[in-house]
């Protein structure tokens, strides 16, 4: 297996008016091809910062990191990943299809190819037939699906998601979690997923990275024993509850260090 993302002794310090903030300190992590890795931890534990560092939206102040064997910035220029933010951030002046076409236009895809790709990813996120609608005509969950489609439209094999369902209600969230799993299965992408929710992390991931704050660091990495086929009711199984328990322990331990 080849590491898609590899971090060694990674540190990232923000200089603020109140002195330096250690967002990440000595983080070591490898993400393998095809992994679904969740990052979970309280606010300020550096999970979003780590994801942004992979995307070269933040620049580490120490240690090394490679993405697809390149520096994160080279990987960004090679358009190695799609990024999904917490807010769908669709352009209100573009239709749903127009929004999904945005990265394709910027990357200079052929016109016919663009249309085919837009149709394809709209089907993939279950939004077939909504291409001509404007964002305000769609619910929050549908908008977020469109933003996932936008990140899938071009051929990046990494998908980075920063609390994509954080602003949605639980029913919509469950549904999107299920859809995300089947999407991951069909596309074979490597996914990095930041979340606040223990059930969400356990349900989705092959590996769960538990982090703790001040300084931001990894306290536990859990390999999930759950099978790849995961119906929603797997959350009532003993294995699921055990993994969730271990995540909770990891989070508590992180806090214990601080006290």
């Amino acid at each position: 297996m080849t590491s898609v993302v590899s971090a060694r002794n990674l540190s990232l310090t923000f200089q603020t008016n109140d002195g330096p903030v250690h967002a990440l300190k000595d983080v070591d992590l490898d993400i393998e091809r095809g992994d679904f890795v969740s990052f979970i931890g309280p606010s300020g534990c550096g999970k979003t910062t780590f994801l942004r560092a992979i995307a070269a939206l933040e620049h580490p102040t120490g240690g090394t990191m490679t993405v697809n064997g390149m520096t994160p910035d080279e990987a960004r220029r090679a358009r190695a990943y799609g990024y999904v933010f917490q807010a769908a951030g669709l352009y209100p002046w573009r239709t749903i299809a127009g929004n999904i076409r945005l990265p394709l236009e910027i990357m200079g895809y052929e016109r016919a190819d663009m249309e085919a790709r837009v149709e394809n990813v709209l089907e993939l996120v279950d939004l077939g037939g909504f291409g001509k609608k404007f964002p305000w005509q769609l619910s929050g969950g549908m908008q977020q699906r469109a933003s996932i489609a936008r990140a899938l439209a071009f051929d990046a094999d990494i998908l980075l998601m920063d609390e994509p369902f954080g602003a949605l209600d639980e029913i919509v969230r469950d549904r999107l979690n299920e859809e995300l799993l089947s999407l991951w299965d069909r596309t074979g992408k490597t996914i990095g997923f930041v979340t606040h929710s223990i059930p969400e992390a356990v349900y989705l991931s092959t590996r769960i990275v538990v982090m703790s704050p001040r300084p931001g660091r990894i306290t536990d990495v859990i390999e999930s024993p759950l099978p790849k086929e995961r119906p929603l009711d797997i959350r009532d199984s003993a294995e699921f509850i055990e993994v969730a328990h271990r995540v909770r322990e990891g989070l508590r331990a992180g806090h214990g260090d601080e006290l």
Binding site: L57, F85, G89, E105
Partner: peptide, 29 residues
């Protein structure tokens, strides 16, 4: 345009001209 919208365009490695024409200009209308 919000920080996230600008970051999104960075993830596409968007040239400055495209950032202006596709995001900043329509947002300013």
């Amino acid at each position: 345009p919000s920080r996230e919208q600008l970051d999104l365009l960075r993830t596409y490695n968007t040239p400055r001209l495209a950032e202006f024409l596709k995001l900043r200009l329509p947002a300013s209308v």
